[in-house]
Design a protein around this nucleic acid. Sequence first.
DNA 1: TGGAGATGCGCG
DNA 2: AAAGCGCGCATCTCCA
Length: 429
Amino acid sequence: MKAEEIILAQRVLEAGRPVVKDELLRVPDESRDWQGELREAGLEKVHEREVQLAPVVAAMRQRGLGVDERKLATLAKLAEKNREEAERKVKEMLGAGCNPRSPKQVKEALAKRGLKLNSTDEVALVMSGDAAAAEVLRSRAAEKRAQMIKAYGEAVGKDGRIHADFDPLGTATGRFSCREPNLQNVGRDAAMRSCFVAGPKKVLVMADYTQVELRVAAFLAKEEAMLAAFRSGEDIHALTAAKLTGQDPKGIGEETRKLAKAVNFGLLYGMSARGLAEYGRISFGLKLEEKEAREFRKKFFEAYPALQRWHDQARQSAEDPKVAEVRTLYGRRRWLPPPGGRMDWARFTALVNTPVQGTCGDALKQAMVALADAPLVSTVHDELILEVPEREAAAMAVRVVAAMRAGFAGLVPENLITVAVRQATHWGG
DNA sequence: TGGAGATGCGCG
DNA sequence: AAAGCGCGCATCTCCA
């Protein structure tokens, strides 16, 4: 086995183990029978596809993603101005000596105003309702944005493009990670995303799986109410909202739908009533008490009883010492922390989350291998971005959708999976 | 001085 | 009684 393949074998076999990243990453251990170990673990197929994927990812990195440097520079100036302005306001309210980037100093300064907090994170600051706390949050957001924009600017190569380091095995579940810079956490707003562009005479073809984790979870749990909704093209988030409020799905407002979306994803992965209440309060300004959140949670699992059973099974496995691993539908393995003690919660969430998130990652990778000869420029978990000459865009869109749906072949019924595709000269579009 | 850990927050 | 998951990155704080 070649050195690169050994490294992939090591990483596939060790997924989920807490390891010092570098050693496992870079040094191929030639002394072991890797093929044998892969076979033994039932991971040959997983490994083989990582081997196929590696050159596709290398080509994607080499190609890079186009950047509109002028636009980015303009945005950088604005962001920097906002950052300074926001910091000035914080210092006006909390004193010139208070560094808004220091949680410790912020906590102390707020305490002097009579606001005692355990944490100065977003939840705590929003909940406080304090004007100075709100300024701190504005300052942090402005700081973050300025930092990120600056980092993108510094990452642009001589060719005017960003060549980020995508790592197909950078996560415990089998998703990609991305670094230097991380193109998987670029701000969602149009001003930010539109700085990432197609070259002259080209367009970006952007395709993403729609509500894919929810669809896969519904399939894994055999949750018929959800599956029926997906099959009939119903709006799943509106459906959940309807189940929780007793309203008609058609009469659900946009805000309620957004909350239901958060409910769907949150409760799916074990969010507590308290967590739900906090989320509703900070993200939607809701007066959501924990009691009411508990009621939502209860109604959610009554509406989707198979999800409840699926969680129950996961809880059992989490406590079962014989259960040492969890697999995606493709067969990818993630080691679990040993049971007993505090880590049982981590075992539970890994047991629930990995088959969903990891299977989606597997499908995306399958699609990428199928698109090996296509000009991929980026990927963000459930999205692929390609850069093609304008006249090829329509055909490529069709091809990408087919490849992404086919990525689930043998894993999840393909008619359960939908892909949205669009094209534009810039990201977002 | 510099490394480890904590804190906080951007994305899917 | 209480816990959404998965990342990367910048900054601050503490300690050797």
